[in-house]
Amino acid sequence: MRVFRLQVNGDPLDVAAPEHWSLLEVLRYRLGLTGSKQGCDKGDCGACTVLIDGTPTLACLALPATLEGKDITTIEGLRPLHQKAGGQGVDPVQDAFDRCGALQCGFCQPGMILSTKALLSDNPDPSRREIQDALAGNLCRCTGYTQIFQAVELVADEVAGREPRKPAWAQAREQEIAAASPKEEPFQPEHGGQA
């Protein structure tokens, strides 16, 4: 057992845990940050991806003893960070994943979203192949990745102020991509009268 001084989502935290526990176990079972998922036990799936100093890292293979003094961002940190930076609601990447249908079972998504955040902070307008390369360590079993790629492209399009690209089926139907646009306040508290 050792007390680790970790910086998680901006908070300095002293956390006691067995030394052979991975960062993933410390996050999930000591800090209650269960958004980082466990899929494969040993670095093969990417579900546990967190950002260490902004870099996508596998929490299941990282030992907390090597992470003191580093900045750890988990999926739980994105929305508060976005709001701290003056944004409304959730991070645009989280929002785009919903609008594009990229969240089915949702189990790979915390890792996928964090890999996407890192990609877009380096390269705000990636090509399809660059997106595939950046997400090649995050296995998804539900989507076939297509709607995930579209979500990343949606963020890039909106940041660039372009008309968002649409999949063929949406073009054929003249379908809006998530009519509930991010501005439609779905995740802001609403005010109203008495029940």
């Binding site: 670095g43 996508p56 890292t57 596998l58 990282a62 997400l135 090649a136």
Partner: peptide
């Protein structure tokens, strides 16, 4: 080598 996260680590 492997995937992006593994190369980062």
């Amino acid at each position: 080598v492997s995937g992006p996260q593994l190369r980062n680590m």
